[in-house]
Write a protein that binds this DNA or RNA. Structure first.
Length: 458
RNA sequence: GGCGUCGUACCCAAGUGGUCUAAGGGAGCAGUUUGCAAAACUGUCAUUCAUCGGUUCGAAUCCGAUCGACGCCUCCA
């Protein structure tokens, strides 16, 4: 099967060919651990999760590396503001990040290297760049990459140097640079950095932001890798600068396919910390949304489109997740142990293999759900077909991970349900309805089937 | 100033030259079922794809203009 991915570099879909047959190397830009990641950040991490799961589903071995940025302006500021050490801040938020990753059932990366463990690798790379004439040090002990020394600069973001606007931010930069757009590889120590510094051939300082990704991707995945991902905002400057650094330092091809996810927006605004309209995973869980609903909401639009995130969207996701889980439960009761797959599975995979078209794949899934429900209603579904359906849902779920697989019903609820059953048998409708209400108040829904009842969390 | 994206039903959202009188989900309405509900099922719900032109035998899909929303141009996923 041909797998196609949209490559930011070429601005078109390309047929995916791994460098090494049967194996895919992926580097994804991870969090900067200075605060809890929000749902917008997780849109990107979930897109990467789907990417990985699709590659695994079609039989590739996947080597995935995600960096943790644990030293930069934001982490240092945070530590200063809270009067804590850098390590205290970054270890706290790294732990929280990993917690959220687990909650959302995101497959963790094989390696999660942190920047501060790779200072030596970065220094070597910077030295190599200076030696080759792609970088220069300044009087204060900083090192900059000279963008004029790298002729392809701008090829990812499709920027040409002439068209660049002289923005205030660039103009206001306090460093002395040859070219205003030259970016820092090494930043000389400043007073506000406190005790955050490493020795280098250029004096005390710390690495520039982009350096860690170049150094760590090379260390863990080699000079040349298959796929590199991140949010669209990373295209420029981060990924553009990575390309310049890596290609210049290594004299090698760097990344074959660059994939970027669009932003999640709330009420037509980008979710951002400065606007104060962010939601974290624990907050959303506290609002009563399940991990499955969150996953569903995040994959219900294509990763390259802006995602309109709203309460309405979450409510819809919850119902959709329930619909699929409901069928799953029914199938469990009917199915024999068969292990064959319906044609819809191939279609499902094929659609996902076409640049991860999750909304379209969900369409296929729902069509199938309706077909099976119809057969169940008409008592036409054979045990064999049910087993097929069950196997399909399980296989699809290896990618989507939206099945809840039976929640445990608390003892109190189970007792109330039983009590209600007795009342119903005695045709005591008043008591039965009251009990249903009571169960609902405790957060569970009871539904009466033709034979018995069903109970699930609200 | 430069580069780029998007505008599909009440809402979300696929479709990127013919199978489109446009998938799927949610909401609504009507019905089957049910002690009543819920769930499920059935029917209904865009002859039309921001607007106006053009190319084509054929366009939501290509081109141009207009209107509207948005992103990037040094540290935000």
């Amino acid at each position: 099967m041909n797998i196609k991915f949209y490559n930011t570099l070429s601005r078109q879909k390309e047929i995916f060919k791994p460098i090494k047959s049967g194996e895919v190397s992926i580097y994804t830009c991870g969090p900067t651990v200075y605060s809890r990641s929000h749902i917008g950040n997780f849109r990107t991490f979930l897109f990467e999760d789907i990417l990985k799961r699709v590659l695994l589903a079609v039989g590739y071995r996947v080597k995935h590396v995600m960096n943790i940025t644990d030293v930069d302006d934001k982490t240092i500021n945070k530590a200063n503001n809270e009067n804590k050490t850098l390590a205290e801040i970054t270890s706290k938020y790294t732990a929280e990040f990993m917690e959220d990753v687990a909650t959302l059932k995101i497959l963790p990366a094989d390696e999660l290297p942190v920047a501060t463990d790779h200072i030596q690798e970065m220094i070597s790379m910077i030295s190599a760049l200076i030696k080759k004439g792609n970088a220069y040090s300044t009087d204060d002990g900083s090192v900059f990459f000279s963008i004029e020394s790298y002729k392809d600069y701008g090829k990812l973001a499709h920027l040409n140097l002439k068209g660049l606007k002289q923005t205030d931010r660039v103009a206001a930069d306090e460093y002395t640079k040859d070219h205003p757009q030259d970016f820092a590889l090494w930043k000389a120590w400043k007073e506000e950095d406190g005790d955050v510094s490493w020795n280098s051939p250029w004096g005390k300082g710390r690495p520039g932001w982009h350096m860690e990704c170049s150094a760590m991707s090379t260390k863990y995945l080699g000079n040349h890798l298959d796929i590199h991902c991140g949010g669209v905002d990373n295209i420029f400057p981060h990924h553009e600068n990575e390309i310049a650094q890596s290609c210049a330092a290594l004299d090698s091809e760097f990344v074959n396919i660059w994939m970027h996810s669009e932003h999640l927006i709330m009420t037509d605004e980008k979710m951002s910390k400065s606007l104060g309209n962010i939601k974290t995973i624990p907050e959303l869980l506290a609002d009563g949304h399940s991990a499955e609903s969150l996953r569903f909401a995040l994959i219900s639009s294509h990763y390259r489109s802006k995602l309109a995130f709203s309460n309405n969207k979450l409510d819809e996701a919850k119902k959709s997740v329930h619909r699929i889980n409901e069928l799953y439960q029914k199938l469990t009761e009917i199915a024999d142990s068969g292990k064959s797959l319906p044609d819809e599975y191939d279609l499902f995979i094929e659609i996902l293999a076409d640049d991860l078209n999750t909304p379209k794949a969900l369409g296929v899934l729902f069509n199938y759900v309706r077909d099976l429900n119809r057969k169940i209603d008409n008592v036409q579904l054979s045990k064999k077909e049910a087993a097929m359906g069950l196997f399909f849902l399980n296989k699809a779920d290896e990618i989507l991970s939206i099945l809840k697989k039976q929640d445990d019903i608390p003892e109190i609820i189970a007792q109330l349900v039983e009590k209600r059953e007795t009342a119903r048998k005695e045709k005591n409708w008043q008591l039965s309805d009251d009990l249903r209400e009571e169960i609902k108040e405790k957060g569970w829904i009871v539904e009466d089937l033709h034979d018995g009842t069903k109970c699930y969390p609200l």
